[in-house]
Amino acid sequence: MGTGAGRPSKDRNVSAAALVFPERGGAFWLFDAGEGTQHQLMRTPLKLNKLEAVFITHLHGDHLFGLPGLLSSRSYHEGAGDLPLFGPPGIKSFLDAVFAITGTHLEYRLDIREAVAGPIWDDGTWSVRCAPLDHRIPCLGYRIEERDRPGRLDSERARQLGVPFGPLFGALKRGEDVELPDGTIVRSRDVVGPPIKGRVVTLLGDTKPCPEAVLLAEGADLLVHEATFAAGMEEKAAKYGHSTTGQAAETAKKAGAKRLVMTHFSHRYRMEDLASLENEARKVFPETVAACDLKAIDIPFRSE
């Protein structure tokens, strides 16, 4: 939704990212909400009544100032249910003050949960944990893990063994052995492949290189990491609590991540500079992409 740092430009909005679950009818989670995020959402198929959770990394304005308006607008979307919102300490005071001063009333229950470290969310399919990063103010990174899925059912093999299409197929896929009318036992392991490894997505807030970033990104299928400055600007990056392209790539390499998406680029870099920034990181970590606003990135299962 936004890939710029500090302030918006004509090419990039400020920080926000959506993790979309197509199999859940377009449901999505939002990570950060800089100013103008709801305008960016209008340029996508995403709808606010499909927003299931919000995760804020820290309380700098370029990650936060779009949140009150977005939450208010969500009240006008039919079917918008209760909404959990996670963020560092202070997020509740911020929202309570904004809503009280402006007289804003939400038509749904906003469940604000301030977090520091550890597991914070589990919906039965995906779980989330967070850890503190190294920035100028308290800042969180989030690791989102999917549970392993049952292996693929070889329906042709099941039919050959006499299993009729219907509920027994589902039982086999769930790992259950089934008994046919003639007493034959068909074992799940004979017709179902090995479990499909769940995916891992890591989205970090602003940070200097730190051990917690590596731990959150360990083995991730996709790591979203800030790269505010180009390689060679490590001193300036450290001064402001940020990372360079090379440092983001080094974190991905240390963590054994599969892919790296760099974001949060300084206002000094134009769209035509993205290829150069991308190439800097690829010298350290080849599977790197420089993000641009409204770019969609598929996260396939490893078997695919």
Rank of each mutant, 00 (worst) to 15 (best):
T245G: 07
T184F: 02
V284P: 08
I297R: 07
G118N: 11
K173T: 13
N49P: 02
P300F: 09
F169R: 00
D96M: 02
N49F: 09
P45I: 05
G81F: 03
A117E: 15
I297P: 04
A252M: 05
P68R: 05
N279H: 07
K236S: 10
E212G: 04
F99S: 07
N279M: 09
E52F: 01
A33F: 00
G183E: 00
E156M: 14
H267I: 13
F21S: 04
V284I: 15
P89T: 06
E23V: 04
F21A: 07
K253S: 10
V191C: 04
R129P: 00
D177W: 03
P167N: 14
R12M: 08
I120G: 12
F169N: 03
D273Q: 06
K236P: 01
R24M: 09
T251S: 12
I120L: 15
F99A: 04
R24A: 14
E212H: 14
S243Y: 09
A131Y: 03
R174Q: 15
R302I: 10
C130L: 05
G170D: 15
E35D: 10
P22E: 10
E234Y: 09
V192H: 09
L67I: 01
V192E: 11
R12L: 00
V14W: 01
A290G: 08
A117S: 15
V178N: 08
C292T: 14
I185E: 13
S127P: 00
P45A: 11
S93E: 10
H105T: 12
H39L: 06
V14E: 01
G2K: 00
D273C: 04
P181W: 01
Y108G: 01
P211F: 08
E272D: 14
T207D: 06
K10F: 09
A5N: 13
E234K: 06
Y269G: 11
G79H: 03
E218Y: 11
P45V: 12
V192T: 10
P119W: 13
V20I: 13
K258V: 12
F301G: 09
G162V: 12
A80W: 06
T102K: 13
T202N: 10
H63D: 03
Y142C: 13
A171R: 15
G6M: 12
A255D: 12
L133M: 07
F28N: 00
F265R: 13
T184A: 07
P84M: 05
G232V: 04
A248L: 13
L67Y: 02
N49E: 13
L110V: 07
A117W: 04
L59G: 10
G66I: 00
V289T: 14
K253A: 10
F169D: 11
F285N: 01
G193P: 07
R129T: 04
T228H: 08
H135F: 15
G198F: 13
Y240G: 01
A158Y: 03
A291I: 03
C210H: 06
V163R: 12
F99P: 14
R12C: 00
E114G: 07
L161S: 01
L19N: 02
E287H: 11
T57A: 14
D154I: 11
T244I: 15
F31M: 01
P8T: 02
L294R: 03
V20Y: 00
P45K: 10
T37N: 05
R43A: 05
A17L: 13
E176Y: 10
T202A: 14
R259H: 06
K254E: 04
G205K: 07
A257E: 05
R74I: 07
A296D: 02
A213C: 04
C292S: 05
